[in-house]
């Protein structure tokens, strides 16, 4: 319950934050909303020498449009994401999935950027941003770079961010006109997802024209159910969707824990993929 000691910096802007990170090297941790970091510190599972609190950097908060994209500041809280009219209009899947994250008090503090940078495959938002073909913008000493979500999640709790980089914003292609659904399966309301499925479906003449399916907790990183996505193309009824969902667990490596075996997770991925796509396609 007692965090280990650390130095503390509270930069006023992104440049200052990046400098602080660069100076500290590997031993610094970014404190965003703190809803993942503080639990790790309290259980003494992390021992940073420096904590860089980016909570006061105003430029990291807020949502804006940029052409066909929505740009969400990394420090935008879950609470604000859920309620933001632009997110609700152009990235409904993100709003829906964010509403299932943890509980209201945690959502008041926790941030979109923090959740993504934490890169927990059991977190709900990595799979969502992956399904939305999002991009993550990082700033380092050399300036900004944009990392596609497909390349961002490297391994368990490991992102493509360098130690001296700060995640500054998340860019999501607008999904106006797409159906969406996040199907989260957990044993109690506040537990992590055993498996979650994020589905986006674009329909054409009552058939699935294009589908994107993200998987939560089916491997060491969030995954796309590529085989299912391909099989969904042209699906015109519930049976076709169900058949496509049969391949939802292909090329996944789900883990074993007290809540589920890999085999059961694979089964759930198939069932939940079916349900998520049916709901997203309005066929449910």
């Amino acid at each position: 319950m007692i965090p280990p000691a650390f130095e503390y910096a509270r930069p006023a802007d992104v440049d200052e934050a990046v400098r602080a990170l660069a100076d500290a090297g590997e031993e610094a941790k970014v404190l965003a909303g703190g809803q993942s970091l503080l639990p790790l510190l309290r259980l003494r599972l992390a021992f940073p020498e420096l904590v860089v609190d980016v909570g006061r950097i105003a430029e990291l908060r807020g949502v804006r449009e940029d052409g066909d994209s929505l740009v969400i500041g990394a420090m935008t809280t879950h609470h604000d994401v859920i309620r933001d009219p632009l997110v609700r209009r152009h990235a409904g899947l993100l709003a829906a999935a964010t509403a299932t994250v943890a509980d209201p008090a945690v959502r008041h503090r926790g941030t979109l950027g923090g959740s993504l940078a934490h890169a927990d495959p059991a977190g709900d938002l990595p799979a969502v941003v992956l399904a939305m073909d999002g991009e993550l913008v990082a700033q380092g000493p050399a300036g900004r770079r944009t990392i596609p979500a497909r390349q961002f999640f490297v391994d368990y709790l490991q992102s493509a961010l360098e130690p001296d980089e700060l995640l500054v914003e998340v860019r999501l292609p607008k999904t106006d006109g797409w159906g969406f659904h996040y199907e989260k399966f957990h044993r109690v309301a506040q537990a992590w997802a055993i498996v979650g499925v994020a589905a986006l479906v674009r329909r054409d003449n009552g058939r699935v024209a294009e589908a994107r399916v993200g998987l939560t907790n089916m491997g060491t990183t969030p995954l796309r159910a590529t085989a299912t996505e391909e099989a969904l193309a042209g699906a015109g009824d519930a049976d076709a969707v169900a058949r496509a969902a049969e391949s939802a667990a292909v090329a996944t490596q789900p883990s074993r824990d007290t809540s589920a075996s890999p085999e059961y997770r694979a089964h759930l991925a198939r069932v939940l993929a079916k349900r998520a796509v049916l709901a997203a396609a309005g066929m449910g």
Binding site: G34, L38, A105, H108
Partner: peptide, 10 residues
């Protein structure tokens, strides 16, 4: 907020 999940400095 959960005050166990906020630093006093925050």
């Amino acid at each position: 907020v959960k005050s166990c999940s906020v630093l006093a400095v925050q």
